[in-house]
Design a binder for these strands. Sequence first.
DNA 1: GCGACAG
DNA 2: ATCTTGTCGC
Length: 222
Amino acid sequence: MHQLPNDPGEAIKLQNEVRKLVKIGGYIDIASVRLVGGVDVAYLGKGASQACAVAVVWDRLSGEVLESVYAQDEVIFPYIPGLLSFRELPVVMKACEGLSSNVDVWMVDGAGIAHPRRLGIAAHFGVLLDRPSIGVAKSRLIGSHLPVPRSKGSWVPLRHDGEVVGHVLRTRNDVKPLYISPGHKVSLRQAVELVLACCTKYRLPEPTRMAHNLVERYAHFS
DNA sequence: GCGACAG
DNA sequence: ATCTTGTCGC
């Protein structure tokens, strides 16, 4: 991660610069995507001055986790809606540095371009690594949408300021839908297709679900 | 001014 | 995110 902003105003200025580097579109071939990465963060205690992160590499063919790396660090930036990346990316990037696999696409908990300045944590993450990334959020940050049909695979567009910034996707029958948006170097259609391909048995795609399970366990025993 | 607001 | 008990369903 680069230098942390000193305040929200500085953070927003930085986002307006970094957003120019985000690429949306088909830089990858979905059929050749085998290794999908997932990252997640957990906080220690309630003072929440320490946080840990995990980066996992999930193999789509075997359905197994090939690699996982942990990191722990002090959390400096406060949680402010729209500025999540400044709080969580420092630890996340630290975990990614220990990785040895070549990940094809990354999935991150949170928004991609479905963000007030089109630079949610997943997009910011993708730009820092200059690798394809997808935002997988469990709830809405911005935008509006119609009700999503109840069956798995159905979706409705998520609109914000006159543009479609993501899809609200039902990954299982009768479960809360997920907010999917492109991060970096992927199209919205590819993002949705990949998330569905990784949702084998649960609401969350395996890479993100595995990362969450592992980092929770790590935080609990550390 | 008031409400909304990823993790 | 984190703090928590019971409960519904496969």
